[in-house]
């Protein structure tokens, strides 16, 4: 093999390794929802290319209010779905939309856009 071939092959394989690490081996630290005086556990979630924060930690048995604010126009993210809670909400651009849930049992519950490109997790303790 000529040197240029070596360079291309090695660089390419390194890139593949980087892609696998970057996209698949990520660890996200959770964000703990804050208690507000209304008895709700509340968190603000920014919808832009993903959910920020994307892992929300809450306690079971108490109502949760997640305020989604979408700041992009791509149609994929115009809805958020909590499949385990049978809840969903439309997210018009630039508006804050609250989703209220009552997690009854501990566990991890995913949420995301209808197409599954945006994902988040509700960790119930």
């Amino acid at each position: 093999m000529t040197p240029d071939r070596w360079i291309v092959t090695v660089t390419g394989l390194a890139l593949i390794g980087f892609i696998a690490w970057f996209f698949w081996l990520k660890r996200s630290t959770g964000f703990r929802a804050s208690d507000i005086s209304g008895g709700y556990q509340e968190a603000m979630i920014l919808v832009k290319g993903g959910y920020t924060p994307d892992t929300i930690i809450v306690q079971s048995g108490r109502p949760v209010r997640l305020n989604f604010r979408r700041e992009e126009t791509a149609t994929c993210s115009d809805k958020v779905i909590f499949a385990d809670f049978q809840k969903s909400a439309d997210l018009p651009t630039g508006q804050t939309v609250s989703v209220e849930l009552l997690p009854k049992s501990p566990g991890e519950f995913g949420f995301g856009c209808p197409m599954g490109m945006f994902r988040g997790k509700l960790v119930v303790e």
Binding site: G12, I16, I19, Q86, S88
Partner: peptide, 30 residues
């Protein structure tokens, strides 16, 4: 807004889809 069970398969696939395509494209380039 709810999901049909069939969608879970798709969700799993789409979680890996885009990076997998990028990897395939690089492999093809090599």
């Amino acid at each position: 807004g709810s999901k049909a069970p069939i969608q879970r398969v798709v969700d799993t696939v789409s979680a890996y889809f885009v990076p997998a395509v990028m990897i395939l494209a690089i492999l093809a380039f090599i």
